[in-house]
Design a protein around this nucleic acid. Sequence first.
DNA 1: TCAGTTCATATAGCAACGCTATAGGTGCTA
DNA 2: TAGCACCTATAGCGTTGCTATATGAACTGA
Lengths: 242, 242
Amino acid sequence: MSLDGQLPPKMRLLRAAAELLAKSAGAPVSTRQITQLAGVSAPTLYHHFGDKEGLFDAVVAAGFEEYVAGERDFAPSGQPLEDIRRMWDNHVQFGLNQPELYLVMFGNIRPESRPAIVADAEALMEEMLNKAAAAGQLNVQPREAARSILAANVGVTLMLIAEPAPDRNLELSTMTRDAMIFAVSAEPASGSAPGSAGKSSVVVAAIALNAALQASHSDQLSSSELKLFLEWLHRISATPAG
Amino acid sequence: MSLDGQLPPKMRLLRAAAELLAKSAGAPVSTRQITQLAGVSAPTLYHHFGDKEGLFDAVVAAGFEEYVAGERDFAPSGQPLEDIRRMWDNHVQFGLNQPELYLVMFGNIRPESRPAIVADAEALMEEMLNKAAAAGQLNVQPREAARSILAANVGVTLMLIAEPAPDRNLELSTMTRDAMIFAVSAEPASGSAPGSAGKSSVVVAAIALNAALQASHSDQLSSSELKLFLEWLHRISATPAG
DNA sequence: TCAGTTCATATAGCAACGCTATAGGTGCTA
DNA sequence: TAGCACCTATAGCGTTGCTATATGAACTGA
């Protein structure tokens, strides 16, 4: 019933709390559950963490270290904006992997206690944006860009967490990500996208449609179809909505 | 000590809960506090709302109605994208005015219960974006644009709530707002467009057409023409680039 | 070696919590 | 007036976060 008897009680409490929190689906986790799973009695918790909240803060801090480690993990690609994309995706993935922890970290932020984490997360992203700025790829100050991108990143992740897992559509993330990165960048990562793996499928679809229509050789639509298609388009776009 | 004795107990409970929640700064609010402030005894709460959570859900529902009313309040400017800006600002202001309520509404969303509110908020924004799409001002589908904009809007609002009030810099909001709106809008301010190097006017028109057709008032195309058009569009956008 | 001190854990229990079994009062309709 | 819903209150159950107090283990200095 209890977690490994070998670890010190402090660690066992941390792991028990994290485990129960992850499984709790939002329901409150009691100190009695935690201490029982840790194989420890009540006062031990208060000796080490002072508070229930203190314990949860420690869990959050541990989770945040894991987050930071993940954000630093990959090798820099040499293209700062591409690295920002990876940081974004990594952030989203962290949230989806540990939704309860994420909700505590970013969903419950109140002015009196939490923003230290937010500030650190911002600093992490700002660090990367500084490289982009140095390379002349930014049209706003790195700090503002970092705050803006992180805010959008958090919002997207919360939205995805709110959706039932089977319905989750990660295109929301890639689309918002690319919109934000483009908005702060000085030069559009234009058509010849470097390592074009990162392009959103919306853009791909748009380019595909464009190409199909421009090229009269399209084998998707016959030339007569195309002619009709364009005629309809014209008819409709010349008409006020309604 | 008790709220107006004239209102029915159900209302008094709602108001007491809302008031205590607003003042609580994140600390939990007990049913005993609520019932005492409402001048009512414990079982009354459970008679009307079943649960503590039921009461809080009712508070949230009331808050959401207020939010929706605010989002519909202003007269349409005739420029859909300008209206989207106002919706964004209104959203942020709502969050800053009632941070505790907002955190419950958007900061604690879990897949099992909450997303109804998110879906409604998305629908609200999608409604406005449909007008933009019909006017040919969008380069993505209104639903995707609404989800993306709302996600960023929520993220920004949470970030601003997390900051101590004196330090709040609303430029984070305006900057992110304009970035998102620009990213989904069809008309680049100048030069080349987002990630697009050429989101052609054909694409924009196609999206506009799609929006107009969804509204189904269209007498511009016969229903058979419409069906064919949508089939072509689907064929084309399902085609890999190049 | 051994008292003194500090650290770490346990027993037992308090006040406050969410909630409910039960019953009494009120205003209808017949 | 009887009967019946509806609404509210008294009292109390089990659980919660937390603590007053005590016990054992490990280190310290003389």
